[in-house]
Simulated assay, not measured.
Amino acid sequence: MSKFKTITASELKPMLQTSTPILLDCRDAKDYRAGHIDDAMHLHEGLRDSLLMKGEKQKTMVIYCYHGHASEHVAEMFSDFGFTDVYSLKDGYAAWQ
């Protein structure tokens, strides 16, 4: 059983109205620049390493990619490092649009 959860785009929208999760876009930089969810940070290697070592492990984190596959691997990694409230966006940015 995975330690992270999945969330759909329709579930994420109300979450963003009531809380401020850490939003991480793990797509490549070009696609991030072309468009991303408001307030999302591009998850480049430096940010990933910094968050893994110094991030608030209880803070809600939502990770997304293109179609929801790569973000599951990233969410699993954060969970393995002790983050307790990690979500992968089901069907990724494609579902958000």
Rank of each mutant, 00 (worst) to 15 (best):
D38L: 04
L23M: 07
L51D: 08
E56W: 02
Y64N: 04
D25T: 11
R33P: 05
H69D: 09
S88M: 09
C65H: 10
L51W: 14
D39K: 08
A9L: 15
T60K: 10
I22A: 11
K5G: 01
C26W: 07
F4K: 10
M77S: 00
R27C: 04
V74R: 04
Q17V: 12
E45F: 11
D49L: 11
C26F: 02
F78T: 10
A75N: 08
W96K: 00
R33I: 06
L89A: 01
A29M: 13
Y64G: 00
D85L: 06
D39T: 09
Q58A: 06
T6L: 15
K30I: 14
L51Y: 10
G92I: 09
H44F: 07
M53A: 15
M41T: 10
D91W: 05
Y64I: 09
H44W: 02
M41F: 11
T84H: 04
E45L: 09
S10T: 14
L43N: 10
K3I: 07
K54L: 13
A40W: 02
M41W: 11
Y93W: 10
E76Y: 00
E45A: 11
V62A: 06
S71Q: 05
E72V: 05
D28C: 13
L16K: 10
I7Y: 08
K57G: 02
L12S: 14
E72W: 02
A70W: 07
S2V: 14
K57H: 09
C65R: 02
G46L: 04
D80R: 06
P21T: 08
I37D: 00
V86T: 06
D91M: 13
H36D: 05
D91Y: 08
A34Y: 01
